[in-house]
């Protein structure tokens, strides 16, 4: 159940990150076109996670809901940093190649 909550939160936070211009700039990404269609999903996911937590055990739902959010945010932050680094290296390599080709 905790794994499912973390997965759903991660999905929500990924969508959220795709909406943040700062995050997109950091990873050198363009705002994807399909993002408009996922607007409803972004608002549905947090209550959905809460629903899962309540269904599992109502008395502990809120702490589990909040704790899984924190872990998912940490995972997305680490993953996004990795993605940004990968794209940075990719673009740097491409630029070096382009410069070499221009010289030739």
């Amino acid at each position: 159940m905790i794994a499912l909550c973390i997965f759903l939160w991660s999905l929500f936070l990924l969508l959220q990150a795709c909406h943040e211009p700062k995050m997109l700039r950091f990873a050198r990404l363009q705002k994807p076109a399909w993002l408009q269609r996922t607007r409803a999903l972004r608002f549905v996911l947090p209550p959905m996670v809460l629903g899962v937590c309540v269904a599992e055990r109502a008395s502990t739902a809120i702490p589990v809901w909040v704790a899984t959010f924190s872990v998912a945010a940490l995972l997305v932050a680490l993953g996004w940093a990795g993605l940004a680094r990968y794209r940075e290296l990719l673009l740097t390599t491409a630029e070096v190649r382009a410069a070499a080709l221009r010289k030739e």
């Binding site: 943040e20 700062k22 932050a77 940075e88």
Partner: peptide, 10 residues
């Protein structure tokens, strides 16, 4: 909110 997941370790 905007810096919630902004981690730049490099």
């Amino acid at each position: 909110v905007s810096d919630l997941m902004l981690l730049r370790p490099f």
